[in-house]
């Protein structure tokens, strides 16, 4: 029992540290990618290739003067960024990062909590993620912050519906709510029995597309970054924030991006599965390669997020709402019904 708790503790700390480090280096990656796409050099002064830039930024964030506006609600003002960070880190608990490790005949799953309602847990944490932004934006007592918070909440509620319906479609295909089982079902790359690829993306690409667009909107990334649209709202919901509290908001966005990339690779691109994994005999080798594969896929999706941000201009607010309510929601419902009919017709249920 004590080894179990110790093992889980190590795993939790490892996942926590990896999330933060990846989020930290995402800021560096984002600047480098932006620079590449705009034909610039990007950060290159701190350390070799500017690799120490995130550390310098972190120190700057911690050292800056902390300003809490007089007219704001102090408790809620501090609670806001904390809540944003908390909810973004909570989601990593149910993601299986790799196949089970076997040491001395004991199996160690590379997943913090294998709960049978993992998909719903993910969705639940995502749905309360908006409170950090809303509370912070309101507590600032600034009209730009409030507008940003209102935009964030309405955008998240709108895109949560389409995301939920696409997740329902995925659950209909997989028939389970457990994240570890979804990963296990996509074993290998090509299923010899059904003569089709085993990854969920190839079973229903439209679901992935809807999920991906909604994930962009849920993480407030461009082209859906209206809550912090600087041309209209100064800084959006974090206008009044300074020092590490601002850092928490920015960091929470990168952690969210990392987690949603991990979720997309898990739900649609096989998670830790890779082609030819059956030809490797040692399960521990499979586990290590699988974990590397999982992180490679995740980092690819983070890159995709950044690529989109520096390519596509921001939506106008009414365009955003039209896309959410008039295109994505009907499309996801039609997709769900069509998937249901197809599953019934082929006798899968």
């Amino acid at each position: 029992m004590s080894t179990y708790i110790l093992y889980k503790l190590i795993l939790v700390i490892a996942v926590f540290v990896i999330s933060l480090v990846i989020a930290m280096y995402s800021t560096y990656g984002e600047r480098k990618i932006a620079a590449f796409l705009q034909d610039r050099l990007g950060p290159n002064r701190a350390g070799p290739f500017g690799l120490l830039q995130p550390l310098a930024d972190g120190v700057k964030m911690f050292m800056k003067e902390e300003i809490i506006p007089n007219v704001s609600n102090k408790f809620l003002f501090i609670l806001g960024p904390g809540l944003a960070m908390l909810t973004s880190l909570c989601t990593s608990a149910v993601i299986p990062w790799g196949p089970d490790l076997t040491i001395n005949g004991v199996k160690y799953p590379l997943q913090v909590a294998d709960i049978n309602i993992g998909v719903l847990y993910l969705f639940g944490v995502v749905s309360i993620g908006v409170y950090g932004i809303m509370i912070g934006g309101w507590a600032s007592n600034n009209k730009y912050s409030l507008l940003g918070a209102l935009r964030a909440s309405s955008q998240m509620i709108s895109y949560e519906i389409a995301m939920g319906v696409s997740v329902i479609t995925l659950i209909m295909i997989t028939g389970t709510l457990s994240t570890s089982e979804i990963a296990a079902q996509q074993h290998g790359f090509y299923n010899e029995h059904s003569h089709w690829f085993s990854w969920n993306f190839f079973k229903n690409p439209l679901t992935f597309l809807i999920f991906f667009i909604c994930a962009l909107a849920e993480t407030n990334r461009a082209p859906f970054d209206l809550p912090e649209c600087e041309t209209e709202l100064v800084g959006g919901y974090h206008t009044e924030y300074s020092s590490m509290k601002l850092g928490f908001y920015l960091f929470a966005e990168y952690v969210n991006m990392f987690i949603s990339s991990a979720v997309m690779s898990l739900f649609f691109f096989g998670g830790y599965n890779f082609p030819g994994m059956d030809s490797i005999a040692n399960p521990n080798t499979v586990a290590i390669i699988g974990t590397i594969v999982m992180f490679t896929k995740t980092i690819f999706f983070i890159f995709l997020f950044m690529w989109i941000r520096w390519t596509i201009p921001r939506f106008r607010y009414d365009q955003l709402m039209n896309l959410g309510w008039k295109i994505l929601i009907p499309l996801s419902i039609v997709n769900m019904i069509a998937t249901g009919i197809l599953l019934l017709a082929t006798g899968r249920v």
Partner: peptide, 26 residues
């Protein structure tokens, strides 16, 4: 009742209360 608990959080805390907060803020 794990399912009920999570759905309770998603529907009430995640959707309905966000709408409440939204209206009160607006």
């Amino acid at each position: 009742a794990q399912f009920l608990a999570v759905v309770h959080v998603i529907v009430y805390a995640g959707a309905i209360m966000v709408l409440f907060l939204f209206v009160i803020m607006m």
